[in-house]
C-alpha cells in the first residue's frame, strides 16, 4: 500500500522523534502518501500509515480528519488555496475568488472535470502583507490581481 520511496521519506521524519514516539511522524506520513495518491487520502491509506507507524488506526483517522491539509475526495492536479480572511478580504479577495471561479468554470470546494485544477477557500495563510494571496502547491502567490491570476493559470499544465 505504501511505496518503498514513501517509506523512506516517512523514516526520515520518524528519526526526528524519540524511540517509541514514531507516531509523531503521522502528520507528515499522511502528507507523503496523500501526495503519492494524487492529492487525497483513502481510508485504506490512513490505515496503512497507522500500521506502518504502529499506532492505533483511530488516532491516524483523527489526525487525517482534524487538520485542514488532508483531502478525502479527489482534488485537481493543482489545488488553488485562496485566502479569504480579513486582510485579503479588505483587498478584494472575494471578487478575485469569483473571478477565478468564472474563469475556471468551477466552484470553490470542487475539482474541475478535466482534473487539472480545484479551488479551495482557506483561512489566513500568514502572508497578509501580500494580500490578496493564494497558495498553489508549495508556493505562495501574493498581491494578486485579475491579470496576475490569468498569468498564473496560463502557467498551470
Amino acid at each position: 500500500m505504501i511505496s518503498d520511496q514513501a517509506k523512506k521519506e516517512i523514516d526520515i521524519w520518524v528519526a526526528k522523534y524519540p524511540t517509541g514516539r514514531q507516531s509523531s511522524a503521522v502528520m507528515e506520513a499522511l502528507k507523503i502518501v496523500q501526495a503519492e495518491n494524487g492529492g487525497s487520502l483513502t481510508n485504506d491509506l490512513i490505515k496503512a500509515v497507522a500500521d506502518y507507524l504502529d499506532m492505533p488506526r483511530i488516532n491516524a483517522q483523527e489526525v487525517a480528519t482534524f487538520y485542514e491539509n488532508y483531502n478525502h475526495k479527489p482534488v485537481g492536479k493543482h489545488v488553488i488555496r485562496f485566502c479569504h480572511n480579513i486582510s485579503c478580504m479588505l483587498n478584494g479577495a472575494d471578487d478575485l475568488i469569483s473571478y477565478l471561479e468564472t474563469k475556471l468554470g468551477v466552484k470553490t470546494g470542487e475539482a474541475r472535470k478535466d482534473g487539472l485544477v480545484s479551488v479551495k477557500k482557506v483561512e489566513c495563510l500568514g502572508a497578509c502583507v501580500g494580500a490578496p494571496m493564494c497558495q498553489i502547491g508549495d508556493k505562495y502567490f501574493e498581491n494578486l490581481t485579475e491579470q496576475r491570476i490569468d498569468e498564473i493559470l496560463d502557467g498551470l499544465k
Partner: peptide, 27 residues
C-alpha cells in the same frame, strides 16, 4: 534541533495544542 510541520489548524498555535500536535495527535 528538528523541524515539525503542521497540517493546517490555527488552534495549534496554542502551546499545549501544539505539543499534542508534535505528539501526532489532534491539536
Amino acid at each position: 534541533l528538528y523541524t515539525h510541520l503542521g497540517a493546517g489548524a490555527y488552534i495549534c498555535g496554542e502551546e499545549t495544542a501544539l505539543l499534542e500536535s508534535i505528539e501526532g495527535k489532534k491539536g
